[in-house]
Nucleic acid binder design. Structure first.
Length: 103
DNA sequence: GGCGTGACTTATA
DNA sequence: ATATAAGCCACGC
């Protein structure tokens, strides 16, 4: 696989329990902020769902991926709630409180 | 090597 | 506030 995917996966692995990160944020931490789309592509490939918590990556508005491969948004929301992530009334993640700092 | 595609983002109307 | 346009990069054919 290319280095880009490897870096992206590396960043996603660093997301601590109870926090989430946006695609753009992951792209920026991976080295290039314009990889936002590539991040989505990489997570879609998701070669190691056991080590890569792709459910901790959400859109800029805290919206979840509609095409989540492991059971849809319901499943993703359940996993995030299990990690202690706070949700808003509309079902989106409360980024103000749960967005990963990047450390 | 070119072309189309996508789990995105930002800008503009 | 929502809708539409453009930019951006890696991957597969």
């Amino acid at each position: 696989m290319g280095d880009t995917f490897a870096r992206i996966y590396e960043v996603v692995r660093r997301i601590p329990v109870g926090y989430v990160a946006t695609y753009g944020q992951v792209a920026a931490l991976a080295g290039n902020r314009r990889w936002a789309r590539v991040v989505g592509y990489a997570l879609h490939a998701n070669p190691d769902p056991h080590g890569i918590p792709c459910y901790r990556v959400v859109s800029r508005d805290g919206k979840l991926a509609p095409a989540f491969a492991f059971g849809g948004e319901e499943r993703q929301r359940a996993l995030l709630e299990a990690d202690g992530v706070a949700f808003r009334a509309d079902g989106s993640v409360d980024l103000a409180h749960c967005q990963w700092d990047g450390f």
